[in-house]
Design a protein around this nucleic acid. Structure first.
Lengths: 339, 339
DNA sequence: GTGAAAGCGCTAACAC
DNA sequence: GTGTTAGCGCTTTCAC
């Protein structure tokens, strides 16, 4: 064991071949396609591998096979529970199939995203997962020409973005619409939105405003926080909304964390929720059930999004075609105490 | 531009060389060591690169140079804000130096961690970042023998783990001690801990109990949640603590999310915080300032931990020695309203 | 300052 | 079932 460990990153495939008295390819097959070998041969080779502590050099394998077994994902930031759960599920799905995940953070900047994609293409990644559908035209064109499978997530292309290859998401605009309808149906007449200066948040706001207008509610104010939109900024934004609409009686928050911060602020102010102010969250995170009152929220399938994205990539990597290249996971309003 | 895009992942270095009328090495130098070329040559080569839309194949480069420019990190899960902020900072630090980050999730399982490390070693990653200092002996031995730089994070080796190569963290046990002292100094006489079935949480609990005992407080109950320890489980655990110690007057929570959930539960029960129950969080996340009352918490330098880990790796990768191989970032108690 | 030759460690045909 | 022959696209000596 100790000797074997000592040899890690030293023994090459050829050394194993010699030790086992077989040829190079036979070792390669023992590693990559064991069922193509006679059981006895396999056993001999495996013993040699074990003895030498051989660890295959995946870089060399990637170069020779032009398959890297690496998938790259670009997210705005991983320190946002909302994305990280998708990434977690993606990584797990890929890991089960022997693929690893390279992570890039765009910090919500299109230029950073494009630079990351270039770096990933240089790495000859097998597949790419992007966040949102609003990539710039040059990036979209470039990716369309590469043969590599790409999955966009967290939105749908129809309402303001272009489909590159595949997508699994939901309509942020529709989610905003439903939020408005939900609050208005519960009697709210003066609405506010606390979100972020960021594409998907803006799309939710668009839908929110549209639907409110359609339903005759004309008082809609929005506060957009520059990312990262942290909880500790929510209280001040709520104050801003109230300053602009003193009769504010319903707030839609871009995520459950912001909504929880609003709830805390209501406790501080002594405002009963939902009677004085209805609060609707987004994401239906564990936070929603822990809050007091429990948060009504819009549930989206974050983990499933990552899992499906991974499956779609894996399907394409095995030269099959996914059932659909455009998956709408939808969303659902979960009504609890806060709205 | 469109032509150039079309050529991505097609043009090789040799094509650029021919287009520019120079040799292969000259192109390689233009990419990797531009200052070693005559300005005119460089300009010609760069023009050809641009024209052909050449993207260097990093896999081939890695194989030839045996440097991958990839660093791998193993975390229990990235969907925990506490780790993801460290990872975010790590990724940024590495990206600035042209390195990319490969992520692996161990789900708090030692076997998964070892398997991930093996896969990463096969990739010939340039460096490795691990979470915690409690890796199993076989893994530690194996990593000590490889020449690659390794940074352990989120704990220190002295109090229950072995140093592999480098470490940047803080003492979880000491943090637990300070938590106990803080609550006791504020008059608490019956303490509870809500944490997770996980190494670092247990270390905090050890320190917490030790110090309480030392200070004469013998009533200390703990509730450990199986990871992932989500907010929505905190209320039930608080009830459990109260069932065991009806006079419970101080709770130390493993992170600010759990603490916020406890605060919400106190609102629900009508218990004044901190008078009826003092609540101390961990992490000093934005949540702490948003809560009502604001959370007292133990601040740790999550982002700095990632940044320092990245810097230490980069230093070693450039064949220099970091100022110290063992960095204790410490922690600090931030006193706000809740405890 | 630039180039020619020799691999890096593996996989992909194709033979046998 | 197993082996042989050629590369994958780049970086590294070492010449000039």
């Amino acid at each position: 064991m100790t000797d074997a460990s000592a040899s890690i990153s030293r023994a090459r495939m050829i050394d194993v071949a010699q030790a086992a008295g077989v040829s190079l390819v036979t070792v390669s097959r023992a590693v990559n396609a064991p069922d193509k070998l006679a059981p006895e041969t396999l056993a001999v080779v495996r013993a040699a591998i074990e003895r030498l502590g051989y660890v295959p050099n995946l870089t060399a394998g990637s170069l020779a096979s032009s398959r890297s077994r690496i998938v790259a994902a670009v997210v705005p930031t991983i320190s946002n529970a909302v994305f990280s759960e998708t990434i977690e599920a993606l990584a797990q799905t890929l890991a089960e199939a022997g693929h690893q995940l390279l992570i890039g953070q765009s910090a919500y900047r299109a230029a950073d995203e494009a630079a990351l994609v270039d770096a990933f293409l240089g790495r000859r990644v097998d597949g790419l997962v992007l966040t949102g559908c609003n990539q710039n035209a040059a990036l979209i064109a470039r990716l369309k020409r590469t043969a590599i499978p790409v999955v966009q997530t967290w939105d749908l292309p129809d309402a303001g973005g272009a489909l590159i290859d595949m997508v699994v998401g939901f309509s942020n605009r529709d989610a905003g619409r439903h939020a408005a309808r939900h609050l208005i149906e519960r009697g709210c007449t003066s609405l506010g939105f606390i979100g972020a200066e960021e594409d998907r948040s803006r799309r939710r706001l668009e839908g929110f405003k549209d639907e409110a207008t359609k339903l005759g509610v004309l008082s809609v104010a929005a506060e957009l926080i520059r990312p990262p939109a942290q909880m500790d900024q929510a209280a001040a934004r709520l104050q801003q909304l109230v300053a602009r609409q003193s009769d504010l009686d319903g707030v839609f928050c871009n995520n459950d964390h912001l909504a929880a911060a609003v709830l805390f602020e209501c406790h501080r102010l002594g405002w009963p929720v939902p009677n004085k102010l209805a609060v609707l969250g987004f994401g239906d995170q564990p936070m929603a059930r822990a809050a007091a009152p429990q948060l009504s929220s819009i549930r989206i399938r974050r983990a499933e999004m990552g899992e499906r994205a991974g499956q779609m990539l894996l399907t394409r990597l095995s030269d099959r075609e996914p059932e659909s290249r455009c998956v709408d996971l939808g969303f659902e309003i979960v009504t609890r105490g806060s709205a």
